[in-house]
Amino acid sequence: MAEQSMPNQSLNQSSQRSLKRSNEPVFWALFGAGGVVAAFLLPAVILITGLAAPLGIPSPELFSYERASAFASSWAGALFLFIVISLSLWHGLHRVYHSSHELGIHRGPLLSVIRLVCYGTALGGTVLSAYWLIAAL
């Protein structure tokens, strides 16, 4: 009987009776905000910092330490970097966490560990980016 599992109807009926408000709105709001940021901003940001900067296109002087730190230590630049980094993390790691369910990890301690690592990393990245950016102001 390994392959066959019976339909889980008793579970269904009990869950209909005791509906619990989910805390998912907190994570979904951050995921959604991050999704918007990643969609509108990330392609250009990746092109600039990941490809143009290391390849020195159009010219290496554009990516000097002076120019980069001037950007990061301005209020607008720091806010921009904070939003891009922290919300991208909340977006990406929320999806990674949900994928673990899709790939067959439905419950149990392993799922709790994945959840802790995903949201912990997002929270840690948020705190660190705020700390470093404020320090640079």
Binding site: S15, K20, S22
Partner: peptide, 14 residues
């Protein structure tokens, strides 16, 4: 709304 707000409501959808 209690059905919508539950994990079994909208939050199981990706």
């Amino acid at each position: 709304m209690p059905i919508v707000n539950a994990q079994e409501g909208v939050w199981a959808c990706t």
